[in-house]
């Protein structure tokens, strides 16, 4: 379905770009599909030729310069994509006012941009990596090739960009992997664990650990419930300042403390008049505690 939609977008103007894409897709389908089947060790050491070892200050500086150049190129792409999008939207508007049938509306310019952005992604530009991860499923390629790309790009993001806002954006996509047609849950778990380990920012660590719970629940692993609980406890304990930590605390509270047979934890609160009262003021009575509202 996606495939035929994507193909129908290739207008004659886009033919060159389309040909390039087909070539790229062909190459990808052949090579990384094999990489997917390769043992884990072989795969993790494969994509790091340009990664700087922190102990080598010259290499670190060279990589920083490379990334600065790549960032410039990405910004240029973004600006040009914005222009393309504006032109495309205007042309679509025209086609609509002329009453043309939907098939004759102009094709999306997105596919034409894919090869350019993908080049930057493969060179490790973090924002291009996120863009590609987001868009690759719309290219109409073979699923194996799509997954191989995602695998590689996510791998770069967590290995080289664990402290960036790009990784934070990628976590939103990574957390929904692990269902049919996407990356295997085990790989999503592994990537998120790496992200949490590699990042030095507690806010990103907390987001990665919290995201991990989703593919973990989809994984069907025998120890998934125990690992989920351990994650929630870790989030509640070590990341209490973050939204994810607070949410974990509430979830644990709901599952462990607020269960039938336990004494309800007491609270002190105020009513709408500002008068303080406690739940334990009602001890000795049967109490219906009702979270409600008129809205």
């Amino acid at each position: 379905m996606i495939r035929s939609d994507a193909n129908s977008h290739f207008g004659s103007a886009l033919l060159r770009g389309a040909l390039a894409l087909v070539l790229v897709a062909g190459a990808l389908a052949a090579a990384p599909a094999a990489a997917l089947d390769a043992p884990r060790e072989a795969r993790t050491e494969q994509p790091k030729p340009e990664q700087a070892t922190p102990s080598d200050p010259v290499a670190v500086e060279r990589r920083a310069k490379e990334l600065a150049v790549l960032l410039e190129r990405w910004r240029a792409n973004e600006t040009a994509m914005g222009e393309d999008y504006k032109a495309w939207r205007a042309a679509t508007q025209d086609a609509r006012t002329q009453g043309l049938p939907r098939e004759q509306w102009p094709a999306s310019p997105l596919l034409g941009w894919f090869a350019k952005n993908e080049e930057l992604a493969d060179l490790g530009q973090p924002d291009a990596l996120v863009w590609c991860v987001q868009q690759v499923s719309t290219t109409g390629r073979e699923l194996a090739a799509i997954l191989a790309c995602k695998d590689r790009w996510y791998g770069k993001l967590v290995a080289e960009h664990a402290d960036t806002s790009a990784l934070e954006k990628a976590l939103v996509h990574l957390r929904v992997e692990g269902s049919p047609g996407s990356l295997p849950a085990a790989r999503a778990i592994e990537l998120l664990e790496q992200a949490a380990r590699n990042s030095t920012k507690p806010a990103i660590q907390a987001k990665a650990l919290s995201a991990l719970i989703e593919p973990l629940s989809r994984s069907g692993l025998a120890d998934a419930p125990a690992r989920r609980k351990a994650l929630l406890e870790r989030l509640a304990k070590d990341y209490g300042e973050t939204v994810e930590g607070q949410r974990a605390k509430a979830t644990l509270n709901g599952e462990v403390v607020l269960t039938i047979g336990n004494v309800a934890p007491d609270f002190t609160t105020k009513d709408a008049e500002g008068v303080e009262f406690k739940l334990s003021d009602y001890r000795g009575k049967v109490v219906v505690l009702d979270f409600w509202g008129f809205w």
Binding site: N253, I260, V263, A264, T269, V286, V288, L289, D290, F291
Partner: peptide, 30 residues
């Protein structure tokens, strides 16, 4: 609001959420 401190502490995800406690303060029904 629905994001008040007690709602968060009590992990309230939907409304109304009702707990029935006995006279000893034990949660008996949800």
């Amino acid at each position: 609001g629905t994001n008040g401190p007690l709602c968060r502490e009590w992990n309230v995800r939907g409304y109304p959420t009702i707990y029935v406690l006995d006279h000893k303060g034990v949660i008996r029904f949800k």
